Amino acid sequence: MRITLIAGARPNFMKIAPIIRSIHNHNQKHQNQITFRLVHTGQHYDDKLSKVFFEELALPAPDVNLGAGSGTQAEQTARIMIEFERDLLQNPTDLVVVVGDVTSTLACTIVAKKLNTKVAHVEGGIRSFDMTMPEEVNRLVTDSLSDYFFTTTDIANQNLKKSGVADERIFFVGNTMIDSLHYSLDKLKAPAIWNTLQLKAKDYYVLTLHRPSNVDDGEKLFTILKTIEQSAGHKPIVFPVHPRTRKNFQSFEAKLPGIKAIDPLSYFEFIYLVRDAVGVITDSGGVQEETTVLGVPCVTLRANTERPETVFTGTNELIGDDYHKLGDALEKIERGNWKKGEIPALWDGKTADRIVQAIATTV
């Protein structure tokens, strides 16, 4: 069987890597071989957001880089579609596997279906029910076109069934992001700033912000950061600054000495920081999952989440734009009064094996 794997943005690499490892393991044990091409759309083109993740997660060099680059949502989508159509025409396949909910996921799904190629969506069925999020549009369009769905939770299964997807097209397999987390735990390394900032385990916070609703308005971003600084019990707040956030943050960085801005980290370095943090403040979907498995308190600066299992089962809490709740949440962490949480079903590091088994025998 021939499959084409699509990766374009940082979260994709972490979800694709375990699938590739599982394909190699399958091919060593079985006669029904699975051959694959890895297509990098180039949606994330900065080495700190792309190349380093290939190296750490032992991903092979992509068979092609479509070189999408930056631009508006429409521009990026159009470039990916044009280049992927050319690639798919030259390299036909039995199945295109897309992951997550980024622009590349949407664009490559549309191209594949217009060329009458089957599509499997890893992380199908997750929903925030917030149409102001570009990712929600990507999810809905991708799921409306996909042939097969590899899901992370029963909540995602139910979302798909409510939209009319037949049971035989849904495979409840778990979470490939957690596969990468398990793979990495014995390979973590302290970033240089561990010594520079003299950090100590459980005596600092990690902060990640990248959503336009939180970072594009400078006044709002300052209010968020000031509230965090005032509520963190004098602990340093380590803030790997996303490129889109850098300009706004620099205008008031000097007024926030407790916020320790650093360049984006590699995956191994970032997880090292998250694992030993007293708590994490984020607006990222993936970080909600990682903190849940690591048992680290997570405060999410969003009114909704496409990963509700991290709230119902895990260590995550949503606080939206309520800065009083933000302060209260951090004070709760400071008092050691945060919920313990549990790990959702099938988030066991073996998801990719279940995906490959399904591809080999059913899809």
Rank of each mutant, 00 (worst) to 15 (best):
D263W: 10
I20Y: 08
E342T: 13
K189Q: 14
S144N: 11
V356L: 01
T4G: 03
P11I: 07
E123M: 03
T361K: 12
A107P: 02
L256Q: 12
T196V: 10
K200T: 15
H234Y: 05
L188Q: 03
I155W: 04
N27F: 11
T245I: 06
G314H: 05
N25A: 14
D101L: 08
Q43K: 14
F172V: 10
E85T: 15
N337E: 15
Y148I: 08
N116G: 03
Q230A: 14
K226S: 06
H324P: 06
L106P: 02
G286T: 03
E135Y: 09
I343Q: 02
G174S: 06
N138Q: 11
T310E: 01
R244P: 09
T196N: 13
L199V: 14
P92M: 11
T305C: 01
F239R: 01
S50F: 05
K332V: 05
D87T: 06
D47W: 11
A9R: 00
S22P: 08
E168G: 11
L301I: 02
W338G: 02
V280H: 02
A329W: 00
I6E: 01
D328T: 10
E253S: 13
A7K: 00
P18W: 05
I262D: 05
K255G: 08
L140V: 14
N27I: 09
V238L: 05
Y323R: 14
S70E: 15
E306A: 07
D46F: 09
A352G: 05
L59G: 03
D143T: 09
F270S: 06
S284K: 00
I20A: 06
E83C: 00
N116S: 08
D348W: 08
E342N: 12
T223Q: 15
P92K: 13
T305G: 00
R244N: 15
D328L: 13
G314C: 13
Y205I: 04
D94E: 12
E331A: 15
G71K: 07
E85V: 02
F172S: 15
I224A: 00
D154H: 14
S50I: 07
V311D: 02
L115R: 04
T361D: 14
Y204N: 04
T77P: 04
P11N: 07
V274K: 01
N91T: 07
A166Y: 09
G69L: 08
I20R: 03
L145W: 07
T315F: 02
E75Q: 12
T103N: 15
V137G: 12
